[in-house]
């Protein structure tokens, strides 16, 4: 008896939702990194004014662990009703080649690209090197002597620096740390010679004149750092730089009309002036690509990453 009534309730709710407007209740945004971190604050800033743009609130839920694989996996397996949107990040480009998890961007219905960050090579305030050329010349003359700290094996910044090293045949002594903050403090304390991090991660130290940024691994200069040369300008051209990226995605099989509602709704949140202002303040470059553009970008990223991963021995 109980079972039947349960079924009735279930059926009723299903049938009512078919005719209802979408969205009729709050949307969940799954963030695969912990609360208070960089990715999380961006997500929270993005959905702050959600109600104006999509009619309902968007609640951020942090599902952390497994280098982001847990949260992204949760998005992939979520009910395809459009009420679960996931934030996806760089790790998704490396899971499969590194043998960490089987997920790739092909498992998702891509919504849009949010931002791209580029790597910066940074040395301490009192370092003997004043330009990228100084550093590379020295490192070539003393193979393995220059210690280069990065944020973790397989992270975007590790691969970005390794790609440069492989291309120009420079042997650095790579020292992996666990995230951006410990890497920065290792440089400030003089425990490593150079660090590779996202350029936005060293913005504050740059403004306080505590460090020297030698170059940014991007095709164009960063608007918040107009004085920092790109790798090509510094004399070491890299054709396709490894970029960190963040984007939004849905599980597969969400009905098309709902995808459209979400795509335009999140685009409006993305264009919200207060979100733009926040990103400018923390030095993040917003890059919009719609679903197709995002897919091209990720497919291209795979091609760029494989040889680099192979060169540092992380390809499985």
């Amino acid at each position: 008896m109980k079972c039947i009534s349960f079924l009735c309730v279930a059926l009723l709710t299903i049938s009512s939702s078919v005719f209802a407007d979408f969205p009729e209740k709050d949307i969940t945004l799954v963030v695969p990194w912990s609360a208070g971190g960089g990715t999380d604050t961006i997500a929270r800033a993005l959905v702050k004014n959600a109600k104006q743009h999509i009619g309902v609130n968007v609640n951020v839920v942090n599902k952390t662990g497994g280098q982001g694989a847990i949260g992204m996996g949760a998005t992939k397996r979520a009910r395809p009703d459009g009420y679960t949107v996931g934030l996806i990040t760089f790790g998704l480009s490396t899971y499969k080649p590194m043998g960490l998890s089987n997920q790739t961007f092909r498992d998702y219905e891509l919504l849009q690209l949010l931002n791209q960050s580029s790597a910066a090579l940074t040395v301490g305030k009192n370092s003997q090197w004043n330009s990228l050329d100084d550093l590379i010349t020295y490192a070539k003359a003393n193979p393995g002597k220059v210690t280069l700290g990065h944020t973790g094996a397989g992270a975007a910044w590790h691969l970005s620096a390794a790609a440069l090293g492989v291309l120009y045949d420079v042997e650095f002594n790579y020292i992996p740390f666990d995230g951006g903050a410990p890497t920065r403090s290792a440089l400030l304390g003089g425990h490593v010679d150079v660090i590779a991090t996202g350029i936005d991660e060293v913005k504050q130290l740059h403004e306080a004149d505590q460090i020297k940024i030698l170059a940014v691994n991007a095709l164009t200069r960063h608007p918040a750092f107009p004085s920092i040369p790109t790798l090509a300008e510094a004399g070491y051209k890299v054709d396709a730089p490894v970029l960190d990226w963040r984007g939004l995605a849905l599980p597969k099989n969400v009905p098309d009309d709902r995808v459209d509602v979400l795509a335009s709704g999140f685009k409006r949140m993305f264009d919200d002036p207060s979100f733009r202002e926040y990103c400018e303040k923390v030095g993040l470059i917003l890059v919009y690509e719609n679903s197709d553009g995002f897919e091209d970008f990720l497919a291209n990223m795979e091609k760029v990453l494989e040889p680099t991963l192979g060169a540092v021995g992380l390809l499985k």
């Binding site: 208070g36 971190g37 999380d40 604050t41 929270r44 800033a45 913005k203 504050q204 130290l205 403004e207 306080a208 505590q210 926040y278 303040k281 923390v282």
Partner: peptide, 12 residues
């Protein structure tokens, strides 16, 4: 994160 959101960059 909270300080940053309020527009203060902690640091030197």
């Amino acid at each position: 994160g909270a300080l940053t959101i309020h527009g203060f960059q902690p640091g030197p």
